[in-house]
């Protein structure tokens, strides 16, 4: 039997084009496997073959989603594949979004299966888990060796149209699909068993997990801007030059609070970025491009806003865990409230 044909989607980094300085790479294709594609090819054990690799820069994709998707799909199509594998993207937000979007478009538009892989906290999971199979991976490329065999195995099952097991069995992130099956015991008995286990403090598995919606309703609008104190917060890593608090370039464990009292303009001599997840050239030249102190000072002088708060807060939003980000947010909010700040502009890169 002929081998199944597989196209692999990668970002500029795993596609061996370059780091953040190449994140604006437009889509391109290469015959055969590239980088992790070699391991993927091996994991198919001769049943399928990576015939081509499509590579796109993470920033190019994120900033030109529609156009990029169109170009990538047409390149994928040229290889006439039976399956598309995207990533794994681990905890890289832009890459995860791209992998999810590519996989979803492949399933919808080309009518063939697709598999991707991400860390459960990757924002791409929330966006695409309902439409595509996402193998749960570790948060960094250390998890490559674990992720690739699972992605290949699920891919082969999809190719051979075999029955796909539960998320626990196959290692993918639950898609919210319900499947009917014949249980050994009737519902009433199962419910009572579960209740007894719960009362005894034993482990039990719910048959209907409740979705965890965490939405905060919007606060009322600011009525009088000209009397309002506005504070700046950023996840773009803008810090005083030298990064005095040594905020980590990725997976930040802290945030910084820095005075901008009397500062009219951020310059390359005074401020820089500590962020390791985007090309720092532009922010290092002029940090106002991420933290708009200069124009807020103008608006303050013109009386359009009451005051720009004396301090701004910064962390690096690059693979930062949701738990840490929430903790930073709570601490920053408490501090802002104590200082009587009326509203916040939060910028992200």
């Amino acid at each position: 039997m002929a081998k199944f044909r597989v196209v692999h989607y990668l970002n500029q980094f795993f596609g061996q084009i370059g780091g953040e300085e190449k994140a604006d790479t437009v889509p391109l294709k290469k015959d055969g496997p590239v980088g992790p594609g070699t391991a993927l090819n091996g994991a198919f054990k001769g049943e399928a073959e990576v015939v081509g690799t499509v590579i796109c820069g993470d920033s190019y994709f994120a900033e030109n989603m529609e156009e990029a998707l169109k170009q990538i799909l047409s390149m994928i199509k040229e290889y006439n594949p039976d399956l598309v594998v995207a990533g794994p993207a681990f905890n890289a937000g832009r890459y995860g979004t791209a992998c999810g979007a590519v996989a979803e478009a492949v399933v919808k538009n080309l009518g063939i299966p697709a598999v991707t892989g991400m860390y459960p906290e990757n924002p791409g999971v929330e966006m695409y888990k309902k439409s595509v199979y996402i193998i749960a991976t570790a948060d960094s490329a250390i998890g490559m060796r674990n992720a690739i065999p699972k992605m290949a195995a699920l891919g082969l099952k999809l190719l051979k149209k075999e029955e796909i097991g539960t998320p626990e069995q196959e290692g993918y992130i639950a898609r919210g699909i319900r499947k009917n099956y014949f249980a050994k015991e009737r519902g009433a008995k199962r419910a009572v068993d579960m209740l007894i286990a719960k009362i005894k403090g034993e482990n039990f598995t719910t048959e209907l997990p409740m979705p965890a919606f965490d939405r905060v309703p919007p606060n009322p609008a600011i009525r009088d801007l000209s009397n309002a104190t506005i504070a700046l917060v950023t996840s773009g890593g803008i810090v005083p030059r030298g990064n005095p608090d040594r905020i980590e370039s990725s997976s930040a464990s802290k945030f910084g609070k820095y005075s901008i009292a009397g500062v009219k303009d951020l310059t390359g001599d005074t401020f820089e970025t500590a962020h390791g997840g985007y090309d720092p050239v532009y922010a290092n030249q002029d940090a106002d491009r991420v933290l708009p102190v200069d124009v807020l000072r103008e608006l303050e002088a013109e009386g359009k806003i009451g005051k720009l708060h004396d301090y701004y807060y910064a962390t690096v939003g690059n693979g930062t865990s949701v738990a840490n980000a929430a903790k930073f947010g709570q601490a920053i909010a408490a501090d802002l409230k104590a200082a009587g700040v009326d509203a916040v502009i939060l910028t992200s890169t």
Binding site: V216, P218, A333, I345, T347, S348
Partner: peptide
């Protein structure tokens, strides 16, 4: 972070590309 600031009762606007 945006959500926690909002939760604390401070109106917040998120400026971002994605």
């Amino acid at each position: 972070m945006v959500k926690e600031i909002e939760r604390a009762g401070i109106p917040v606007v998120h400026m971002c590309t994605i």
